[in-house]
Design a protein around this nucleic acid. Sequence first.
DNA 1: AAAATTAGTGTGTACGTACACACTTTTCAC
DNA 2: GTGAAAAGTGTGTACGTACACACTAATTTT
Lengths: 342, 342
Amino acid sequence: MNKKIRIRDIASIAEVSIGTVDRVLHQRGKVSDKALQRVNAALKELNYKPNPMARSLKNNKVHSICVLVPDPNKDLYWLPCQQGIVSVIKEYEAFDLDITVAYFDPEAPDTLVHEGQVLIDRFPDAFLFVPLFEQESDILLKKLFNRNIRSATFNSLPKKHVNHHVGQDLHRSGRVGAKLISSFLAADSNIGIIHMDEAFGNAIHMQQKEKGFRSYFEGTEIKANIYTKTLDSDAMGDDLSSFKETYDIDAFFVTNSKAYKVAHMLEVMDKNAFVIGYDLLPRNIDYLESGKIQFLIHQAPRLQASRSLKHLAELLLFGKHTPTKEFLPIEIINSENLMCYL
Amino acid sequence: MNKKIRIRDIASIAEVSIGTVDRVLHQRGKVSDKALQRVNAALKELNYKPNPMARSLKNNKVHSICVLVPDPNKDLYWLPCQQGIVSVIKEYEAFDLDITVAYFDPEAPDTLVHEGQVLIDRFPDAFLFVPLFEQESDILLKKLFNRNIRSATFNSLPKKHVNHHVGQDLHRSGRVGAKLISSFLAADSNIGIIHMDEAFGNAIHMQQKEKGFRSYFEGTEIKANIYTKTLDSDAMGDDLSSFKETYDIDAFFVTNSKAYKVAHMLEVMDKNAFVIGYDLLPRNIDYLESGKIQFLIHQAPRLQASRSLKHLAELLLFGKHTPTKEFLPIEIINSENLMCYL
DNA sequence: AAAATTAGTGTGTACGTACACACTTTTCAC
DNA sequence: GTGAAAAGTGTGTACGTACACACTAATTTT
C-alpha cells in the first residue's frame, strides 16, 4: 500500500513513456512543453524520490577517494585518525569504493604537496586530507579545484575553497578551557598558556586557542593574570620552572596534545598546578588518571576522520548531501568519563 | 581494474552456474559436494561480498518500523528525541522504509503496554521504544519476542532480552558528577543528592546515578559527607531550604533533568551552592549561562533516538549489523561548550 | 515534392541479486 | 531394466534506473 513511487508510476500518470520522464528528470531536453508540464505535475503530486539503490546499481562506477593524513609514526596524535579511516574502509568494503590512503610528514610541510601530487595523479573522484599547513594546503586545494576533484578536509582549520570540512571550533575550545580554569580557581589567579613546540606547524591552532582563552576573561570581570610561554620539548625544564616561579602560576593551559610534558616536568620539580590539555594520548591519560592533569579537551580525531570520509562515501554512492562545514562538539574529559571515549 | 566481485565471477571461477552459487550463498541445499567445495573455495579466494544495492533492490519489500516514545508534550525532555526520529525518517524517505511513530504518557506506565499493543498489531519488522518502565517494558518485549519482531530500545536501561540498545552508562555518569564536584570543592564538603519527582517512573535511573556518585567517593580518601533527599516539585521550597541549612550543603547533584527547579529555589532563597544536573532543557540552559548551574551532564536524547533508529534502518535495508549494546559518551557541558550541542 | 534534418517519443537492455521454474542426472524401488 | 522420485544444475525474469538506440512526426532544405 505504501509502495514507493517509481519512474513508471510517474510515466503512467503523466501518460508518457519512462524515457520521457527520465529526460525530464535529468534535464537533457528533447521533451515537448506539454509532456514536460504533465511530468512535472506528476512528479510534484506524487513527491517522487528516485530509488538510490537502483540508481547506484545502474551507475556501477567504482568511485575512488584518496586520503592523505599525517603519519601516525611521526606523531602519535594521528593514530586514532588512521583508525577511523580504516574502520570506514571496512564498513564500505561491500560497496563500489576504491579508497587509497597515504601519509605525509607532520613535521615537513613540503611532503603534503609532494604526496598530494602523487595521489592527484591517480585522478580520484574525491580527495580528503588534513590541512595542517596553511600555504601547502592552498596549493593542494588549487590543484584539486583545477582538476575538478572534490576536496574535503578535517581537523585544523576550514579553508576557504574546500568542498567539505569536519572540525572543531578552536577559538571556542580555548574558551572552554578558560571556563574550566575560572570555575576552579580564585578570581585573581595567575594562569600560564603554554605553546609546546610551536615550530612544527600548528601555530595557527595554538593561536586560535589562545585567543579564545583570553576572550573568555575579557568578557568577564574576573581579574586573572594570563601569561603566555612558548616551550621547546628538548630543553623545557628550567624554562618551565622559572616561568612558574616568576609569575607564581596556578594553572596551565597547554594548547596542544603535549600537556603530558608539562605534567611530567611539574612532577619532576615536585610542584603542583592545575593543568588542562588536549587529546587523549596514552601519556596524557596516565596523568589524567593520576590527577596531575585535571581535564583534557577531546578533539575526537578518530571521529573527525571517519565522519568526513563517511560523508564523501555517501555523497559519491548515494548522492547524500551534507553541510559544507561541520563542527564537532568540544568534549570535556575528566578521569571518569574518559573511558567512554576510548 | 578494481572491479567488484560478482556472483557471476564466482560462478565462472568455480565452473558452475550462477544458480548454484546462489544456492551455496543462501544455504538452501541441492548442491553436490564437489560444487559446494569449489564454490566455497572461490568465495574465499575472491573474498566475495554481495552487493547490498542489488540485494535490496531485488528484495523490494517495504520494511516497517514502529517507534514508541514518551510524549514530548508531557515532559519537554523528550522533545529532542522526537526531533531525532523525525530527522532519520527524513533522511531515509527515499528508501523502502515505513516508519510509524506513536507516543505514550511518561507518567502512566500502562500506556506503554497499551499503545505498544496497537503498534504490534501492525506487525512491523522492528519495534523501537523507550523502556521507561521496568515491568511494562518486559511485557512488551515478551510480546515482540513471541511474534518474532525485532526489538530495540534507547535511553533508560538495557533490558535482558532486547535485540539492540543505545544508551548511556548511568552508574558511570553518577561518577562523572562526583568527580566534577570533588574537583571543585574542599575535601570535607557537604554534598546533597537530589531526586526530583521520583514518583513518576525513572526511579531506577536515579538510583543508578546515586550509586555511581557514591561509589566514586568510596574509592577515594576524600571525606565528603553525602546526603540524599527526595523532593516533590509541588512543595519543595521549605524542604530544600531546611535540607540545605540542616546539613550545610555546599553542592547539589540532581539526578534528573529538573536541576532548574533546584537552581530556581536557591535563587529565590538567595543562597549559593554548586549545582550539577542533567540534560539541556531550556530552563537548565538559562541557569547554566547565568552561572546558577555549573555543569550539566548531557544524555544526548536526540542522538540516542536517531542512532538507534538509524541502526534499525540500516539493518533492515542493508543487513548492516551493529553491536547489541552501544553506550554513548557521557558529555560534560559548561556554559562554553554548550552551543556545540544545540 | 522529395530528401534531409530535427524534435519528440518509446523500447530494450544492463547493472547484480534472488528465486521460480525447467531441465538433466542420479538413486532406488519393484 | 523400467519408472518414479530425488538430487543437482542452469536459465530466465524481476527489482528501478539510466541510457543507447530505433522509431515517428514535424520541420527545413534542396
